[in-house]
Design a protein around this nucleic acid. Structure first.
Lengths: 200, 200, 200, 200
DNA sequence: CATGAATGAGAATTCATTCAT
DNA sequence: CATGAATGAATTCTCATTCAT
């Protein structure tokens, strides 16, 4: 006997359909009628679970962002003991996940650039930056992070990741394990500097 | 009596209004009626100068992209003789321009992510990557570029620049000359590696 | 509780309003907003039942033409055994129906002359001429049809009918049974000739 | 030295362009901008000669109808001495002219069926019927016109002529002199009846 | 709870008409 | 007189949202 689901089947079907359609046609190109049809529910049902179209998108964005945060955290708490190990785990996890999940990635991108993303409480940084900042404050033995604001350190890793994942989705490059390793090292180099012997 | 202007006043007023409004409300959030009102022209005038709303956006995008390319090229042909000098000039020029021109920056970002940007000939990379690729192929004395596809090398510079410029516009960080210098060096580090003495 | 109607009430209301308005103001003079208002439905409802304004007109035309064909056929299969009897039945049926149904008549006329009527498969002649041609090929005992193309024979009956029906609608003449009989005989005379005794 | 023209060149150019365009695209499909362009005049010029688009069409219609009347009268006053000779001259003149002048014919037809033709003073009949009625009242030696209203007699000739001319323009039939003779006799038969010997 | 027909405000686009040059 | 850029009301069509069944 199936136990009651936390999120009802219909609700989930709507979210799945929305993810798929928005990633394909964008927010304005995706009508509520289309979502309902793709999710095999009536229009009224959609409005039972989500107050407005905008609210649906917002909830989905929050959900996707939680997923993103989970990926980042899994890298941090994963078992790697060195800072670089954790950094590498995060970059690899992010890259692998979003390269394989184009619709989720495109949804996040489209939302971030759309006019929907105006309310500040939706801001990534507060949530995502916290664990990062934590790492940055912890010292390393033979390196130090650049003397730049945490936001910028984050942007210097996240920015290139986004651009590169887009390239993969556009099939302009195909990613290999070696390339991802190399990219990881490069990004690490861009945000750290070696301590001079006298500092050690 | 006013002399005839090369690009009509009305046409320019429409483009100015569009830039402003799209950067604020996005493409779908900006109606032609609003553009016409903001530009102080009648609806019909807009359609005298631009065949459709979509055409208006495309023309503006092409114009903005030419500006972007101009900035990049000006860094290359600017007078710097070393590769790093040129790289630095480009990063500084890009950063300074788009930090100071939020509406132009946001227009470009929104267009690139919108469904308007589907026609492949609008693709930046072909145009913008050419001069970059040229630099990469030229050797340096004591460094070499990472063995990564040109697209990725480009993404590792352009990606963080975009993210950082956004941070500045969101007023999450304020950029100083020292920071921009530091960022430039970091990005350079991320895409190059030192030759070992034996290679020199 | 009202039972489901075969053709929805709203759809029928839209078609009724269209017939009325188009016959009065013509196609271009009849806006979709006006049709919706007259039919007591929202604008969106019109577009639920008909893809475009043009499609609405086409569907209505096809419907009206079927009615016309039905009238002609009913004259042919009606029970009259002589050729003249059938001819007379058709002319009387056509005349009576369209004199009494001005809006249907005017809709047909307007559509036939409008630029909507460009698609060749909408051409009456193929459909309407078939039963006529059939009659013409059958011989009579003491008459023969003029040696003119079927199209022209048809035009020599249909053309005057149209003109006369218009006169009635304009109230320039009022039609009596005797007049219709007289007209029927006249039209018959115009398309047939008596066989000479030697041919009989 | 050219004498002042009764109708200015520009005015005539506008009317020529209108005739051509309306016969091709219909009234609503012909914009004033298109007319001005085709006539090689500015938009303002059009409005110097004609108060409104509607007025332009009306004046053109009146002009075309005068032409039609001229053709009919030329048949009457042409030299034919018998009634049938005059009738035949009219039918032939009408047929030949409008088969050769499709644009003029279509303009007349479109106008008659359009919503422009609402003002009763534009009514053909008053003008065109007068000379016809005159003929009908004159007796013949061995025939008499059917006892039907003049309007209907007229419709029984004009109606089929219109339908047949349309067939020619649609290239569904090609008209020969013999066919036109035959049609003329048929139409004559349809509106007259032979006097019996005792009546002569 | 689920449905989808109905709604109407709002969007892009056209075009007859005007008027400053 | 001639011009054509400028105008904005009007038109067709879409789609987020509601509500009777």
């Amino acid at each position: 006997m199936a136990t009651a689901t936390l999120t009802s089947d219909k609700r989930q079907a709507i979210m799945d359909a929305t993810l798929e359609l928005v990633s394909k046609h964008g927010f304005e190109g995706t009508s509520t009628a289309l979502i309902a049809k793709e999710a095999n529910v009536g229009m009224g049902t959609l409005y039972r679970y989500f107050e407005t179209k905008e609210e649906l998108f917002k909830e989905m964005f929050i959900h996707q962002r939680e997923q993103l945060l989970g990926i980042i955290l899994s890298g941090i708490v994963g078992g790697e003991t060195t800072i670089y190990g954790q950094f590498s785990a995060i970059v690899h996890a992010l890259g692998r996940f979003y390269m394989a999940h184009q619709v989720e990635f495109e949804f996040l991108q489209r939302y971030s650039d759309s006019s929907y993303m105006k309310e500040s409480y939706l801001d990534d940084s507060a949530i995502i930056l916290a664990p990062i900042a934590n790492i940055l404050s912890s010292g390393g033995e033979d390196f130090r992070f650049k003397a730049l604001p945490t936001h910028i350190i984050f942007a210097m890793v996240y920015g290139p990741m986004i651009s590169i994942i887009q390239l993969v989705h556009q099939e302009k490059v195909s990613m290999t394990d070696e390339m991802l390793d190399s990219i990881t090292r490069s990004l690490w180099n861009s945000i750290t500097e070696k301590k001079t012997p006298s500092e050690m």
